[in-house]
Design a protein around this nucleic acid. Sequence first.
DNA 1: CCGGGATATCGAAGCGCTTCGACGCCGGAA
DNA 2: TTCCGGCGTCGAAGCGCTTCGATATCCCGG
Lengths: 373, 373
Amino acid sequence: MVTLVEVARHAGVSASTVSYVLSGKRPISDLTRRRVRDSIEQLGYQPHAGARALASSRSRIIALMVPLRTDMYVPVMLEIAVAVATAARAHGYDVLLLTGEEGPAALRRVTGSGLAEAVILMDVQLDDERLPVLRAAGPPAVLVGLPGDPSGLSCVDLDFAAAGALCVEHLAGLGHREIAVIGEAPGVYARHTGFAERTLRGLRDRAAELGAGLLHRPCEGGHDAVAGVLARVFDERPGVSAFVVQNETAVEPLLALLRRTGRAVPEDVSVVAVCPEPVAAQASVPLTSVAIPAQELGRRAVERLITELSARPGDGGPEVGGPRAGGPRGGRPGDDGAGAGASPAPGVELLTPVLTVRDSSGPAPASRGGVRN
Amino acid sequence: MVTLVEVARHAGVSASTVSYVLSGKRPISDLTRRRVRDSIEQLGYQPHAGARALASSRSRIIALMVPLRTDMYVPVMLEIAVAVATAARAHGYDVLLLTGEEGPAALRRVTGSGLAEAVILMDVQLDDERLPVLRAAGPPAVLVGLPGDPSGLSCVDLDFAAAGALCVEHLAGLGHREIAVIGEAPGVYARHTGFAERTLRGLRDRAAELGAGLLHRPCEGGHDAVAGVLARVFDERPGVSAFVVQNETAVEPLLALLRRTGRAVPEDVSVVAVCPEPVAAQASVPLTSVAIPAQELGRRAVERLITELSARPGDGGPEVGGPRAGGPRGGRPGDDGAGAGASPAPGVELLTPVLTVRDSSGPAPASRGGVRN
DNA sequence: CCGGGATATCGAAGCGCTTCGACGCCGGAA
DNA sequence: TTCCGGCGTCGAAGCGCTTCGATATCCCGG
């Protein structure tokens, strides 16, 4: 293995000079810098990560904790993870993959050992057991998701409440008075997963405001489960003319079942989904939907973390060492590309949802069941 | 931060003794060991990862390279990734998440800098640009997938050729003489993704052997794309009575379209899929399918790597340091739980596919088009 | 012609851990 | 009793890098 000392010898300078060329923390003459760079190139030198971490107490690693279970939003999770990795690299950081399996202990382990400088948590629950670790003198952290009490924590998420409200508004605007919500699997609610409950609240509140009826049903994925739920929905509320779906695996079964039972979309029944764009766009009926901006979430989480990290020690120097740092960054920290809503708490950043109208929603059929008013 | 020296002082021993207690590489008396362990506990000591890596030149980190694009097999990818992370932890290793973005350079970077000791590559293509790096004095590596030339490489994958053959056998056994294959998106074949081509070969070879007609059509996901492909298939080969689907996003659209065009499954048309179990089991018609054992693949990849790693330096000592090492390992290296096929090359481990019969396949309708013979 | 302040470079002291050789001690064989 | 071989422990030397002070050099004004 080529070491810094060998590079120094080869370039005819001292070790510290090579180090300063690399870090840019002290001025180095053009000539020397060039010579050192040449030597680095020729010898194929790569700084030893461990030695660096030891000497500088900065590992340049971010830990990303993904849920162990894969019962929901799988593509979203992967997309976020990949976005995090990509964004981190653009800032010279690498990403350590943790699963929820070890729980809070994993956080202590990787930060306590100096393996990771900071963490990003996905799939945060309302009362997440990992949060105390973070609050108590924890490492820099960003949650993708919103816990019950976000105080003292940095969070990024889609504003699911607003997303729910948006769906109801859209449907109510089209004249629908009875709306059914096909939700995530019961287990998701049982775990008090924030986004599911917040969506529901948004749906309910706006429905109440607009005087529309709202029926919520959790639903396992799969054809049969959806069939059961659907039958009961129409049984209880024959007047339902619109569905809001927040469950990727229920989308196609729902469409298939509606079709089969002779309900045309959107003529007889409207459907609005909260799901990633590809799912909505490729559905058998292109769906009017509120997108889940997975990439954006991942990117923002990293941006926040980097900001926090570089604000800490006397850093801020140029040339962080990552290749092409600062290159392909879609947006700069602080821009409001997707529109950050007014934060309900400092540290919480909620992206404003956007509803895209496609083919699955239309005017409510003229008074089918009992239209009030 | 608590250091080893502080632990030593607290326990009244030397630093090296603490180190040996931790590594178990030299005998330590019971009494001393207990004292040291107590001190570690009380002080909440965590060994510094960087210092460890530096001194021992072993980082205890495995790099996992996942594809950047997310146009196929997304749940499988995540499942493999999570399985890798879990299995690695069980052996005291952590996982570094790399995306394909940086390509071969990322491999050089993380292994050259000693950040990762070994790598696992997913989404390997037939002629993958990352392979030369691995062959040329590369780090220990395991591919999940099979490149065109696996010589000198360690690979784990499902035997997709056998999977294809299995599908054809099953259908031919039911009397089907004309089979259509709905494949992955054209881009997947264009990239020469190994598994897609191998499946196709398996399908074709066995079909030829059994004298069945086989029509292969790549297919983008989404309803409309499938509709187009399906129309053309029936146009070209009206006698098609069975489908093999290798494209998760095409499954539901296919079933919906068959239904809509008045073809009952499995009475009129049989469908067999190559996909993860949940997709098959939850489809609107539970699908006869060959499972893609994502978890198993991830686990085996890690087992192989660990074996290779511990065979290297003078390791093999007890108590590797990872918590509960050797705990929840589903299978031991060398077991043939899922049945490893006879390896076509040393280092290649192909899992034997298993076909599960569900509701989507049945006897061919009595001579519909022209049955030969 | 000299002092002062940049500017560029060097040397050395760690960072926290592993590991090798050495040493003291105890029990058994001679 | 003496000698020998383990066993258990210690001390010290790095691992490769960062960083802090010190030093040398140069240019300028006085």
